[in-house]
Design a protein around this nucleic acid. Structure first.
Lengths: 362, 362
DNA sequence: TTGAAAGCGCTAACAA
DNA sequence: TTGTTAGCGCTTTCAA
């Protein structure tokens, strides 16, 4: 057995009594070479079981046809779904995707970026971790001459010189909360997010506050629980809210996992959605509609985001001269299901008149 | 700005008036070099912003420290979760993970394998697509001298010469179905899977049939609906079952997505789980317990599988001489929740005596 | 402890 | 249309 001894261009060239260069060009379909030679070269390559060595090709051509991607989490609907679009779009454009996962850890994120640069990826798409504050690493990437696009999450405030593909977090949240106000809720809470050093943490909270402000509703500080973006954060956030004493009628969850955590907490506390607490969140999932009650949310078009991110980075790679920034803001839509519906609200009102002054969860 | 002009070993060497080799060794912590020189080299490297070129390193050293991974789907809990373990374990062992996604498409899977070989990954971990039948590509990978491990899904029958990390599909399914029998169900259906060219399709159905056989229950062919492993397959499978006429009391779903599709179909048909139809499935998810009713299932330890897969491939990479096959079979556990509980069964029985002969869905 | 020579497999620029 | 020359940036002998 021929172990770690791969067929090379040389082997094919020898067999055909031509030069390596001819073989190289023929294999890549270069117009220099006659169709006849191409055919012959391909035939022999196939027979010999030739597999081009991308490491050598990339080293020599000084480009890799690889896209580096950094995401905070993998086992989340939003990222899984977005990544599927990234992979597909990259594949269609003959790019390989190198995916790395920071696990919401800034240090790990930094290491991954260094690795991607060492792999000489042609461009980087990143959604930063929830704890990333230091932006020096991104400046370093820029200095290395590798274009980088922030998708969904970027540092706050915005880094000049970097392109972004973002979601309209403020408007999406505002619309959702205004809907809740419209159907009659006045005691409003917010869980997850709220960290000022990244856009989604800041802007989703901002949207929440703007909605309240424009309707003359006071913001109750004890009903705004800042924190991470995970299921655990949602669970703990709701528990904290509950321990605090008074509860709002409605909470907005900064992310879908946060909402899941809240569902869990509510279940554990023996409470009921939407009777005891109503809820909406930012981000959909393939099974929000199977939850009971089915979860209304701000829908982020995951496929569109992933596709746009790849298109943006490809444009940056192909036109390296223009120092132009691309800024795409993708609008969201409100997805209304069982939670936060007029029915839910009505039932709640009705119930309010029946229960004792001890409150529903007593 | 220094564009596409990276700092090289040469640059560091020049500055320090030593040779490239010394720098190379120093940077890698080779014992040849004095601590003093090492320190100096590292200092200058940092100042200059040196980033090692992995393409060059890999080409020269003839190993890449990269693991290739092929999975059928990304936005599924099982794969997302397993991959998180793969990434983590690889990372801890200083390996980079190159992930590709076949989208359950055999042709795409083949292309990805060719790409991974061209990238000269040191080893490959693969979970084959639901339509993969031709195993020639795996033999080719073997011939190229790259070790390959099948994880979760492999071709059926087993390919000699390849290592596997599998789940005990037959026993897992059998135990689950036997539980359903124990609590009183006799009219049993099966949806999804059943394709004889891959292990999970074959063995989950086998487990189902074995459970029925050992309890003297006849298999109703019209209640066994073969098909793919996706949500859509579950939905359509259940619809087909429903159109056929008579319905079983219980169905086993070959995968978690299939079960989701069934939940959806049941909802759309205005039926109730577990009153009209009870259900269990193979595979858990982070929100099975939040469904209503919460879904009982055969739990696959995703983290363990991902970790074991990486450990297996690393062993194969590090000990290339032994032609030994590794075969790991990971046991499952039964996760009992609301569906398929004695309570559910009792309620159903009770209901049966009330409803008219037209049946519950009439 | 250091370095010189050779080469990994390929491509780009330029000649022929 | 084909081939020659000269690297890409690094590591691996093996000699000093």
């Amino acid at each position: 057995m021929r172990r770690r001894k791969h067929v090379t261009l040389e082997d094919i060239a020898e067999k055909l009594k031509v030069s390596r260069v001819t073989v190289s060009k023929a294999l890549r379909g270069h117009s220099d070479i006659s169709d006849e030679t191409k055919k012959e070269v391909r035939r022999i390559a196939k027979i010999l079981g030739y597999s081009p060595n991308y490491m050598a090709r990339n080293l020599s051509s000084r480009r890799s046809n690889m896209l580096g991607v950094v995401v905070p989490k993998l086992a989340h609907f939003f990222f899984g779904s977005m990544l599927e679009a990234v992979y597909n779009t990259a594949f269609e454009n003959n790019y390989e995707t190198i995916l790395t996962v920071s696990q919401e850890n800034a240090e790990r994120e930094r290491k991954h970026l260094e690795t991607l640069i060492s792999m000489r990826v042609d461009g980087i798409i990143i959604s930063i971790s929830q704890e990333t504050k230091d932006t020096g690493i991104f400046q370093w990437v820029k200095k290395m001459g590798v274009p980088l696009v922030f998708v969904d999450r970027r540092p706050e405030p915005a880094l000049p010189g970097f392109s972004t593909v973002l979601i309209d977090d403020e408007a999406g949240t505002r619309n959702a909360v205004e809907h809740a106000i419209k159907i009659g809720y006045r005691e409003m809470g917010f869980i997850g997010g709220g960290n000022p050093w990244n856009n989604i943490g800041k802007n989703r909270l901002l949207g929440f506050m703007n909605a309240l402000k424009s309707h003359g509703i006071a913001i109750q500080k004890e009903w705004v629980v800042s924190g991470g973006f995970g299921t655990k954060d949602g669970f703990e956030g709701f528990m904290r809210l509950h321990t605090n004493g008074t509860m709002p009628e409605f909470v907005f969850a900064a992310t879908y996992p946060v909402a899941l955590g809240i569902y869990q907490a509510v279940k554990e506390l023996g409470m009921k959605i939407p009777d005891d607490i109503d809820i909406m969140c930012f981000g959909d999932s393939d099974l929000s509609h199977l939850l009971t009650p089915s979860l209304s949310c701000v829908n982020q078009p995951t496929l569109e985001i992933g596709t746009a991110a790849v298109q943006t980075i490809l444009d940056l790679i192909r036109n390296p001269d223009k120092e132009k920034e691309h800024h795409l803001v993708i609008p969201t839509t409100l997805l209304l299901r069982d939670t936060c519906s007029t029915v839910a609200r009505a039932r709640r009102e009705e119930r309010k008149t029946i229960v004792t002054p001890m409150g529903p969860s007593a």
